[in-house]
Measured scan of single mutants.
Amino acid sequence: MAAAAAAGAGPEMVRGQVFDVGPRYTNLSYIGEGAYGMVCSAYDNVNKVRVAIKKISPFEHQTYCQRTLREIKILLRFRHENIIGINDIIRAPTIEQMKDVYIVQDLMETDLYKLLKTQHLSNDHICYFLYQILRGLKYIHSANVLHRDLKPSNLLLNTTCDLKICDFGLARVADPDHDHTGFLTEYVATRWYRAPEIMLNSKGYTKSIDIWSVGCILAEMLSNRPIFPGKHYLDQLNHILGILGSPSQEDLNCIINLKARNYLLSLPHKNKVPWNRLFPNADSKALDLLDKMLTFNPHKRIEVEQALAHPYLEQYYDPSDEPIAEAPFKFDMELDDLPKEKLKELIFEETARFQPGYRS
């Protein structure tokens, strides 16, 4: 834990890192770190609560700039109880001085990944967590956004079992017609939660990839272990087919990539493993919904509104309290091709509203 900075004593240090967030945020305490930044909790002297502050230093890398800009653009436009918001952003007053960006968010005690390492969940908890994931996802999908990296560590939890989806750095506007060349190379989302079509096709992607990830998360809540822990690309596919069985001819016809289709045709026939054999203690309604989410063919996979209306979630289902976005989200430009200098300018502009004396 960093010592509390005395008023006016300059930035606090946390594990050798400068955290320049005073005077409003003090009493910093280390939480963890990701690929390009550290997260601390801090005391907000204005709202009198502890908050989470993520320090991001992305400006050396085009990919990190892209992810940072995506996350900020999306989260500043989203407003939903099951999606983490941005409360404040701290950065230098000029673009030349801006080396880091500090993002202030609600402090959540833990995440689903940490929880599943230590606790076996009751059916009631599984049901409530799944409902909140789908409630947040309904809003995301209504904005025409794909999260693309749903996994237990991106689901934040607090002691009252509130759940918030975080990390929109890989999110995209849904565009089933656009052929994202190089899709697989830039697709760094965790393999275990990846839909089979991501490994088999490169053309376009749809909201059904997020539903697949939610199915993987439900299976993990039922058993405290990942359902498809593939060691590499082909191993991942083999794990999936080992449980779902061989795809039907109709399902194979959806695979545009001939090499991928021929690979699947070359494999020995596998039978589907019954879900109640894998999860003998699970609620039968939970397994019915799991089956509809972990469907090989993305066109037959359940959609988020149908999933919310499934009998497993009937005690929570309330369409009048499951809000959607006001308007579909649009990125003005494809960020993939922009140089990091341009992305830095866009991050600077996007964060201006939090600067003292800002006038829109």
Rank of each mutant, 00 (worst) to 15 (best):
residue 227 I to R: 05
residue 137 L to A: 05
residue 153 S to T: 12
residue 69 L to E: 13
residue 70 R to A: 05
residue 99 K to V: 12
residue 258 L to G: 10
residue 269 H to T: 04
residue 322 E to P: 15
residue 6 A to I: 10
residue 213 S to W: 04
residue 274 P to Q: 00
residue 102 Y to T: 05
residue 19 F to N: 03
residue 326 E to H: 15
residue 190 T to K: 03
residue 62 Q to P: 04
residue 307 A to E: 07
residue 39 V to L: 01
residue 180 H to R: 09
residue 164 K to M: 07
residue 233 Y to K: 02
residue 280 P to T: 00
residue 325 A to E: 03
residue 347 I to T: 10
residue 350 E to Y: 15
residue 308 L to S: 12
residue 192 W to H: 03
residue 47 N to E: 06
residue 183 F to E: 06
residue 221 M to W: 08
residue 41 S to H: 13
residue 151 K to L: 03
residue 360 S to Y: 01
residue 349 E to R: 10
residue 189 A to C: 09
residue 279 F to T: 15
residue 4 A to Y: 15
residue 314 E to A: 12
residue 260 A to I: 14
residue 273 V to E: 00
residue 257 N to E: 05
residue 167 D to N: 00
residue 223 S to M: 07
residue 252 L to G: 08
residue 105 Q to K: 00
residue 81 E to T: 13
residue 16 G to S: 11
residue 294 L to C: 05
residue 212 W to Q: 02
residue 149 D to E: 01
residue 35 A to Q: 05
residue 138 K to R: 03
residue 337 D to L: 10
residue 98 M to E: 10
residue 123 N to S: 06
residue 148 R to G: 01
residue 201 N to S: 06
residue 44 D to Y: 00
residue 71 E to P: 14
residue 139 Y to G: 08
residue 13 M to T: 07
residue 83 I to R: 09
residue 122 S to H: 11
residue 328 P to F: 04
residue 275 W to K: 05
residue 194 R to W: 04
residue 18 V to L: 07
residue 246 S to H: 14
residue 61 H to S: 08
residue 58 P to A: 13
residue 126 I to W: 05
residue 192 W to F: 02
residue 199 M to C: 06
residue 69 L to M: 00
residue 21 V to F: 04
residue 91 R to T: 15
residue 48 K to D: 07
residue 35 A to N: 03
residue 56 I to E: 11
residue 255 I to S: 07
residue 293 M to Y: 05
residue 254 C to H: 03
residue 94 T to N: 03
residue 82 N to C: 07
residue 355 Q to C: 14
residue 54 K to I: 01
residue 172 R to G: 02
residue 238 N to V: 10
residue 2 A to K: 15
residue 120 H to C: 11
residue 55 K to N: 00
residue 344 K to D: 04
residue 33 E to L: 14
residue 166 C to P: 02
residue 7 A to G: 09
residue 335 L to E: 13
residue 270 K to L: 11
residue 47 N to K: 00
residue 248 S to Y: 01
residue 4 A to F: 15
residue 64 Y to R: 05
residue 211 I to G: 02
residue 92 A to M: 15
residue 254 C to R: 06
residue 44 D to M: 10
residue 253 N to G: 08
residue 231 K to C: 10
residue 18 V to I: 04
residue 100 D to Y: 00
residue 56 I to W: 01
residue 54 K to F: 07
residue 215 G to D: 02
residue 100 D to Q: 14
residue 249 Q to C: 12
residue 106 D to W: 14
residue 7 A to T: 08
residue 177 D to R: 07
residue 260 A to W: 06
residue 287 L to K: 12
residue 140 I to Y: 08
residue 59 F to Y: 01
residue 91 R to D: 14
residue 179 D to I: 11
residue 241 L to Y: 07
residue 290 L to K: 04
residue 198 I to M: 04
residue 55 K to V: 05
residue 283 D to T: 15
residue 221 M to N: 07
residue 216 C to Q: 01
residue 327 A to C: 14
residue 29 S to K: 13
residue 126 I to V: 03
residue 201 N to K: 00
residue 92 A to L: 13
residue 100 D to G: 13
residue 160 T to Q: 10
residue 207 K to F: 07
residue 331 F to C: 13
residue 54 K to E: 03
residue 81 E to A: 11
residue 95 I to D: 13
residue 317 Y to R: 15
residue 90 I to L: 14
residue 2 A to S: 06
residue 95 I to R: 13
residue 352 A to M: 03
residue 59 F to V: 08
residue 81 E to W: 13
residue 294 L to Y: 03
residue 78 F to P: 07
residue 244 L to A: 10
residue 314 E to T: 15
residue 235 D to Q: 03
residue 124 D to P: 10
residue 81 E to Q: 12
residue 217 I to D: 03
residue 217 I to Y: 03
residue 271 N to D: 10
residue 30 Y to L: 04
residue 111 D to I: 10
residue 195 A to F: 04
residue 319 P to S: 05
residue 88 D to I: 15
residue 310 H to C: 14
